[in-house]
């Protein structure tokens, strides 16, 4: 009896945590709060304009009156500044009233405080169902097929689009009947010195099974110095961020009624790589841009 009580409490605590996490992961489209976004815009504008000297080009390529699947290359470790900058640009261009959702890793959405802020800004935990639901509701959805694999790539691979062969986004666009709009960004991988994905370490610690994490990244980042995992984030260096939105790709029109997923994947990644090479050619110095 003496030992049962703490066990019971531990079980209750675990149950509580599990319930909290499940609630956050099952968040709905209605968690997005336009007023919250409107109030966040001044901070985002200040940071984007003066700290990151950000530039977002060709937002007019996002269809104004119908949903679309926005496909981006993922950068910056767990501090994905380009996503925040893109959200600012989208909200000022189309107005906070237009629904817009992003998919993020379960861990980010379930995180206390930060997770709540992400959900209010329209972020949903990454799943095919959530994306489909948002597209059906008429909202553009931003996905990062490369996920944790791409965002933790070493800094010297910063100008490389690496979706690790993940093609689920193509099936998603086909099922929903929406165009793919590639969103290419540069500079995120210069916000810290990313050294290694630590894929072997993640596998050895079974993080892929326990937390859907295929990486345990190692970087040199402020204020930690050596930063393993990047779970608490880091203070990003003021790298210049440039984002370019490419013209929409109507899959059925360009690839026929039953497109070959591999062919579409090669086409989309090649287009994005070409655009990223163009952005890289404009940069003279790391961080400064």
């Amino acid at each position: 009896m003496y030992y049962d009580e703490p066990q019971g409490m531990a079980a209750k605590a675990m149950g509580f945590v599990r319930k909290q996490v499940a609630n956050r992961l099952n968040g709905s489209l209605e968690d997005r709060d336009p007023d919250y976004l409107r109030e966040a815009l001044p901070w985002l504008w200040l940071l984007s304009t003066f700290y990151f000297r950000a530039e977002v080009r060709d937002l007019g390529n996002v269809p104004a009156d119908r949903p679309a699947l926005l496909v981006g290359n993922h950068s910056g470790g767990n501090v994905i500044v380009d996503t925040f900058i893109f959200s600012l640009a989208f909200s000022t261009y189309f107005g906070v009233e237009r629904p817009f959702h992003q998919l993020a890793h379960n861990l980010a959405v379930a995180w206390p405080v930060a997770g709540g802020m992400l959900r209010k800004s329209g972020t949903l935990s990454a799943s095919h169902e959530h994306a489909e639901e948002a597209l059906e509701a008429g909202a553009p959805v931003l996905v990062y097929p490369g996920g944790d694999w791409e965002t933790h790539r070493p800094s010297w691979e910063g100008n490389k689009v690496d979706f690790a062969g993940r093609k689920g986004f193509i099936r998603l666009a086909l099922d929903a009947g929406v165009p793919i709009v590639p969103v290419v960004s540069i500079g995120g991988q210069e916000t810290a010195l990313f050294l290694s994905r630590g894929a072997g370490l993640a596998k050895a610690l079974r993080l892929d099974k326990l937390l859907r994490l295929k990486v345990l990244p190692v970087s040199l980042a402020l204020p930690w110095g050596i930063n393993v995992g990047d779970f608490a984030g880091h203070l990003p260096l003021p790298a210049k961020i440039t984002i370019e939105v490419l013209p929409p790709i109507d899959l059925e029109r360009e690839f026929g009624p039953d497109p070959d997923v591999d062919e579409v994947y090669d086409h989309v990644t090649a287009l994005m790589q070409e655009a990223l090479d163009g952005l890289a050619a404009e940069r003279r110095l790391p961080v400064i841009g």
């Binding site: 504008w45 304009t49 000297r53 530039e55 977002v56 937002l59 640009a89 261009y93």
Partner: peptide, 13 residues
């Protein structure tokens, strides 16, 4: 109307 100010194109109806 949209006008570029800093990092964003701002404006609206």
């Amino acid at each position: 109307i949209l006008v570029r100010v800093g990092a964003a194109e701002v404006g609206g109806l």
